[in-house]
Amino acid sequence: GEEMDTAEIARQVKEQLIKHNIGQRIFGHYVLGLSQGSVSEILARPKPWNKLTVRGKEPFHKMKQFLSDEQNILALRSIQGR
């Protein structure tokens, strides 16, 4: 696969979550399948791509996919709003 700019992906995700008022817990649960603790760690201190294991890269693939389609963001927003 291609190398990803993990810091940039994390920054964009944080931006979207704040902009749409989506909590990290909801994002972690529905998008990444991770706990809030793992999510906040990944978003606060993303490791460089070449330092990640295959498993460590997974959340970034999912985040990139999440960012690529605004429908994903809107869907999360409606879950959050319940």
Rank of each mutant, 00 (worst) to 15 (best):
S38C: 14
E15I: 13
I9M: 06
R11F: 06
V39T: 15
M63E: 01
Q71S: 14
N72A: 14
H61A: 10
Q80L: 09
H61I: 15
K47H: 06
I26K: 08
N72F: 08
E2S: 10
S68V: 05
K64T: 06
I9S: 02
I42W: 03
S78V: 08
L34N: 05
F27I: 01
E2M: 10
R82N: 15
A75T: 13
E15D: 07
L52W: 01
V31C: 07
G56D: 14
K47D: 10
S35N: 10
R45C: 13
L76R: 00
L32V: 04
D69W: 04
N21C: 07
E15Q: 10
V13Y: 01
M63P: 01
N50Y: 08
Q80P: 10
Q71N: 10
S38K: 14
R82Q: 15
I22C: 04
S78N: 13
G81V: 14
G33N: 09
S35H: 06
G81C: 14
E58A: 08
V13Q: 03
S78P: 05
S35L: 04
Q65H: 13
I79D: 06
G56H: 05
E2K: 09
L52V: 01
M63Q: 01
G33C: 04
Q71Y: 06
L76M: 04
E3V: 10
I79M: 14
E8F: 07
I9W: 01
K19P: 02
G33R: 05
M63R: 00
P48A: 09
L43N: 00
L34H: 06
A7N: 09
I9P: 03
S40H: 15
L17G: 03
K64W: 06
S38R: 02
K47E: 12
E8P: 00
V13W: 02
R11L: 07
E70D: 11
L17Q: 03
V13D: 04
R45T: 13
A75H: 14
G56Y: 05
K62F: 03
E70P: 14
K19Q: 07
I42Y: 05
M4N: 05
I73T: 08
G23T: 12
K47N: 05
K19T: 08
R11G: 07
D69Y: 05
Q24T: 11
Q71M: 08
F66I: 03
L67I: 05
K19C: 05
G81T: 14
L76E: 02
R45E: 13
D5W: 01
Q24C: 09
L74N: 11
F66M: 02
K62Q: 08
R11W: 04
N50V: 05
Q36K: 14
A10R: 01
Q80M: 10
E2Q: 09
R55H: 15
Q80G: 11
P59E: 15
L34Q: 08
N50R: 11
D69H: 07
I9F: 03
Q71R: 11
N21R: 09
I22N: 02
Y30W: 07
K64P: 00
I73R: 03
N21H: 13
R45N: 13
K47I: 10
I79K: 14
F27S: 01
I73E: 03
P48Q: 06
F66V: 01
D69P: 02
L74S: 10
K19D: 05
G81F: 08
F66H: 00
A44L: 12
L34M: 15
H61N: 09
D5T: 13
A7I: 08
G56W: 06
I22M: 03
E2G: 08
I9A: 02
I26S: 08
P48L: 04
P48S: 08
E15L: 12
M63T: 01
G33W: 00
M4S: 05
A10G: 03
L43E: 01
E58H: 03
P59L: 15
W49E: 06
Q80Y: 07
S68T: 09
